[in-house]
Computed example of a mutant assay.
Amino acid sequence: MPPIRRVRQHVNPLSHKYADPAAAPNWSQVFTHPQQPLHVDIGCGKGDFVRAMAAQLPEWNFLGLEIREPLVERALIRRDSAIEATARNLHFVFCNVNNSLKPLLADWPGGCPLQRVSIQFPDPWFKKRHQKRRVVQPGLVAELAALMPVGGWVWLQSDIEEVCVEMCDRFQENPAFVREGDGWLAASPFPAKTDREAVTAEKGLPIYRAKYVRQ
């Protein structure tokens, strides 16, 4: 096993280090059934959420995107060492999603099967001058609108209300997406939780959740 690399807590996506888009792998080799519905988890961290989802929902493919390369390396090692790895419905890619989403998904064999996207507990970048580093930007929302079919949906959640409000604002600005329900949603629709979600819930602290459906 390769040596464990140090993981930075915060990564500036605007750094020149992350300026080059990621190259798409051969998806027909990555996934046993590449045309199964696809769930993309943006900012997947260690990948525990999508790994649990892939194990519970073999009829879906799951793709975790993460900007911290050491976390992706470890997630792939854990995937390949797991018994359920033979199902081949789970993959991870190191990338800056704001310049890599389209290159990764646009040329999917048979057409992109993207049905669901989750963006959960993203880096808040509290300082005003750093907020341009936040992951949900108008360009990302526009690319999701172009890649997703009508009825596909995006799940947003954070334990910081300001961050979730801003994510919602970016989706609200795009007429291709419509918010489901009034106000924050009470519970996640998924059978798995992120680490941050589980810890926050155990502490009894609020989690702000919203769902946007592609029209």
Rank of each mutant, 00 (worst) to 15 (best):
P103M: 09
Q29I: 09
R214G: 05
H16P: 15
M53C: 11
P2M: 14
G64N: 05
A55C: 02
E162V: 03
N61F: 03
P109Q: 05
V135L: 14
F62G: 01
T200W: 02
N99Y: 10
R5H: 10
Q157G: 01
W125R: 09
G151H: 08
I67N: 02
R5W: 06
G151S: 04
V97W: 08
P109G: 02
L57H: 07
V150F: 11
Y18Q: 12
L101D: 07
L114M: 12
A187D: 14
V213F: 03
N61W: 00
R6L: 14
Y212E: 04
S81Q: 10
N98P: 01
R214K: 10
N26Y: 12
R170G: 01
W155L: 07
P13F: 09
E162N: 09
Q215A: 04
K128P: 11
R51Q: 07
N98E: 13
C44G: 06
H16I: 13
L65Y: 12
I160A: 07
A192P: 02
K132T: 05
Q131D: 03
E197D: 11
A82Y: 03
V150N: 14
R51N: 01
P138F: 14
W125S: 10
Q9S: 11
I207L: 05
P13Y: 10
V150I: 13
A85K: 03
C44K: 05
A75G: 03
V135E: 10
